[in-house]
Write a protein that binds this DNA or RNA. Structure first.
Length: 508
RNA sequence: GCCCCUGUCGUCUAGCUCGGUCUAGGACAUCGCCCUUUCAAGGCGGCAACACGGGUUCAAAUCCCGUCGGGGGCGCCA
């Protein structure tokens, strides 16, 4: 059996979309599982839209996702070049071959003529296919017109009738009526190859055995098969993947939210989580487990089990998977991944000392179990870096509105404001004292204490929170963490100020 | 308009290839309970689907036909 060779062939016309990323991923999974070769080919023949920087971006995004290729524009290989723009001579050569054998012909129709023809056909309720007007031009005449410098495209002669059929690895037997397909353009009048022609030449010359691509190519396949036929080549096997849709069941696009791979990395989705999620869009492993590594996915993946119907991209499930993957990382690794998000938010220094890392690990360990994307981290950590009684939320305010609970908060601040560093032991001591002095316990004790220390009504358990604050307060940070003592002093001032206002009101 | 693909809980899917084992399984979301000084997380449990209509058959999510819905294509874009 020949070695499996698959390819991913994107156009560098923008940031890579998760739908395309999934196509790349399925190819990669199949290649790795079959001990095959994964080829990256850049289809940059659309000069208007293709840009070199997009190719770089594309490569970076694919690598970020965890894909690698054995052959490609950046790594070379025996079947190159891997950029279509560098293969123009090859396309021209096979074009001449088809022309000389009478299987292709020059077409002099202008884009305007063609558009008019199309509109007329549509209006008359006919299939808007090319009429074949130039097909019967005498070969010598066409040749001399071209020699004279007239612009012409090269078209394939599609057989008059009959059907063309092929077996799709995912969809089974498919067939198409040839009378419905117009003569496709092989080489455009600007000398660049058209998609349906270039893929065939490249896939064959690159010895591709399996073409795994999006469903939107199903009806292109008969045209490509015709090119294989004309050239006398054996076509590869085809597998057409269903599309990825947005929540409203239309093709996933920007208005559905994040769609490009780099947007997901920016919001703090782990590459292994996106990878896992993408693999699950249209496929499920035989056993029930869902949180899987790349290696496990390679083992379990089965191209024949891929779904034929379109799948809706579910951000919630992706976030859940992200949390699961994050949890599986070691504490040090979690800190390492979280770091850029916190540094960029101005919460951590560019240069981290071991003490910073040690603190970050504890912080990340305490806060990330409820975080589903790393970009949420700066907001979640605001409770450490920020302490502003004047900006309390309603719930916290209502806690302090109660006289007894306000008394608890006040007493707590009074006791803590002179303690240089609040250790867990001292915290329990203070809590016990207040309990004794005020008879407050349970919620009535801890709610006000929490508000006193955080100016919020909810958050991390205080036993975990306090050591993080005290350790953070000792560190040199771009944005200092106020210590418990500082918090207590500030809250005390705030409470007393409020008291005064209330008294004024009462007496006035 | 024509051609092609497709249709199981709100979502991703298992099951359909070899009809009975399906009172249709799992996961996300949702709801409830537990845990708990709060919010989450976590644990436990609940709600929830074979698009519709005809066949075939003792028996259909599974086979056949039709309808409807969704998507894609019909480019000198890829």
């Amino acid at each position: 059996m020949n070695q499996v060779r698959v390819r991913f062939a994107p156009s560098p016309t923008g940031y890579i979309h998760v739908g395309n990323a999934r196509t790349a991923l399925f190819n990669w999974l199949f290649a790795r599982q079959q001990d095959g070769v994964f080829v990256l080919r850049v289809e940059d023949t659309d000069v208007e839209r293709s840009r070199a920087e997009y190719e770089e971006r594309l490569i970076a995004d694919l690598r970020w996702l965890g894909l690698d290729w054995d052959e490609g524009p950046d790594v070379g290989g025996a079947y190159g070049p891997y950029r279509q723009s560098e293969r123009l001579a090859i396309y021209a050569e096979y074009g001449q071959n088809l022309l000389s054998r009478g299987l292709a012909y020059y077409c002099f129709c202008s884009p305007e003529d063609l558009e008019k023809e199309r509109q007329e056909a549509l209006a008359a309720g006919r299939s808007p296919r090319y009429s074949g007007r130039c097909r019967h031009l005498a070969a010598e005449e066409a040749r001399s017109r071209v020699a004279a410098g007239e612009k012409a495209a090269l078209r394939l002669k599609v057989p008059e009738g009959g059907i063309i059929a092929y077996h799709d690895l995912i969809r089974g037997d498919l067939s198409f009526d040839l009378s419905l397909v117009g003569d496709p353009v092989l080489i455009r009048s600007n000398g660049l190859p058209a998609y349906n022609y270039a893929v065939v030449i490249d896939d064959h010359l690159m010895a591709i055995t399996h073409v795994i691509r999006g469903e939107d190519h199903i009806s292109n396949t008969p045209r490509q098969l015709l090119v294989y036929q004309a050239l006398g080549w054996e076509p590869p096997q085809f597998a057409h993947l269903a599309m990825v849709m947005g929540q409203d069941n239309t093709r996933l696009s920007k208005r559905h939210g994040a769609t490009s791979v780099d947007q997901f990395s920016q919001m703090g989705i782990l590459p292994e989580a996106l990878f896992n999620y993408l693999a699950f869009l249209g496929w499920a492993p035989p056993e029930g487990r869902e949180v899987l590594t790349r290696e496990e996915l390679i083992k379990l993946f089965d191209l024949r089990k891929v779904s034929r119907s379109a799948a809706i991209f579910d951000y919630e499930k992706l976030f859940w998977l992200n949390r699961q993957h994050f949890r599986q990382l070691s504490i040090a690794e979690r800190a390492r991944r979280a770091f850029p998000f916190l540094k960029d938010a101005g919460l951590l220094p560019e240069v981290m000392t071991p003490a910073h890392w040690s603190w970050l690990e504890k912080v990340v360990d305490s806060f990330t179990e409820t975080v589903d994307r790393l970009s949420e981290l700066p907001d979640r950590l605001a409770i450490l870096f920020e302490f502003s009684p004047e900006r309390m939320d309603e719930e916290a305010k209502s806690i302090l509105a109660d006289k007894a609970r306000r008394q608890v908060a006040w007493l707590f601040c009074l006791k803590v404001k002179d303690i240089p560093e609040l250790s867990p032991a001292e915290f329990s001591r203070v809590a016990a004292e207040i309990k004794k002095e005020t008879a407050a316990k349970g919620k009535n004790l801890y709610h006000p204490v929490r508000v006193a220390l955080t100016a919020r009504a909810s958050g991390l358990e205080l036993d975990r929170f306090i050591p993080l604050v005290e350790e953070g307060a000792r560190l040199s940070l771009p944005r200092p963490v106020p210590s418990c003592r500082q918090r207590a002093a500030k809250m005390l001032a705030f409470l007393e100020e409020g008291q005064k206002i209330n008294q004024d009101k009462g007496s006035g």
